[in-house]
Amino acid sequence: MYSHTKQVIEAGLPAEKAKKAIIMLHGRGASASGIISLKDHLDLEGFTIVAPQATEHSWYPYSFLAPVQNNQPALDSALEVIGSVVDDLKQQGIAQENIYFLGFSQGACLTLEYTTRNAGQYGGIIALTGGLIGEKLVNENYQGDFNNTPVLITTGDPDPHVPVSRVNESVDILKELKADITLKIYKGRPHTITGEELALANAILTR
């Protein structure tokens, strides 16, 4: 089994000149450069943009619905990489409430898992087709107070990887931690990112 080394690509403003930051997490089989290309469709003026790269292009080996231990040590290692990126941004002068997250698919699951384990006030959280990770969700893993952080969670119905039932379960946990949730479930939408989802993401990025 593998763990991750911290490799990030950056775009937008240098962190020391930016007021805001966004951490973008790619999906399985994809790349940091692929997810960072979404910047051309997002309102990221004034942002520094950071995208970590998963070892072997996958944040963890099995489905996000597998028992957590089956996805170790890759999953814990992935969460550590994100935590390290967050720490770097804070050290460069960006406050946590100005840090945003965006992930697609496996990256969306990881986005939700990291932020919900570390619930606090963030700029915004955009999880495009994702849910919290594990065969069963353990409420004790998720602590803190989002303090009305805006959170967008989407999926297709049905989606080949992310069942609506898990999305709904995840939404309930985030709401308990006081996240301000926008949930969108698209009938018959393939496993992709739509223009409407990008528009909803921009509403969070610009508010």
Rank of each mutant, 00 (worst) to 15 (best):
V81C: 07
K20T: 13
Y100N: 11
S31P: 12
F101I: 02
K20Q: 12
L137A: 00
K175N: 08
A54D: 06
I126S: 04
E196D: 15
T192W: 00
G46D: 10
K175A: 05
Y142H: 02
S58D: 07
T154I: 11
A199P: 04
A54N: 07
P61V: 05
T154E: 09
V171D: 05
F47R: 03
R207D: 05
Q121S: 12
G93T: 09
E97H: 15
Y60S: 04
R189K: 15
S105G: 11
H191N: 04
R207Y: 03
P158H: 09
Y100F: 14
I181A: 06
Q106I: 04
E140C: 08
S84N: 13
L183W: 03
R207C: 02
I126T: 07
D76L: 10
D40M: 15
H4Y: 09
L198N: 08
L177Q: 09
V8L: 08
T154V: 11
K20F: 07
Y100V: 10
G46W: 14
R207L: 02
I99E: 05
N147W: 00
R189S: 13
L112C: 10
N118F: 14
N147E: 11
A127Y: 00
D159A: 04
E97C: 13
G27A: 02
Q96D: 14
H57K: 13
L198D: 03
I49G: 01
G123N: 10
G107P: 04
K184T: 13
P158C: 10
L79M: 12
Q121K: 15
T48G: 00
Y60E: 02
K136Q: 08
Y186L: 15
T5C: 00
I153N: 05
Y100M: 11
E176T: 14
A21K: 14
D87T: 15
S58F: 07
I193D: 01
A30S: 13
A21H: 14
A66W: 09
I22V: 13
R189D: 10
K19T: 14
Q96R: 14
P14K: 01
L152W: 01
T192F: 04
S58N: 00
K17Y: 12
L25V: 11
D172K: 14
L79P: 09
L152D: 02
C109T: 10
P150I: 08
L137M: 07
T111N: 01
V151R: 00
F146A: 03
N118A: 01
Y122Q: 08
Q96V: 13
Q92N: 14
A18H: 12
G46C: 12
N118H: 15
H57F: 01
V162S: 03
S77T: 00
L44M: 05
S170N: 02
T111D: 06
M1F: 08
E16C: 10
K184F: 10
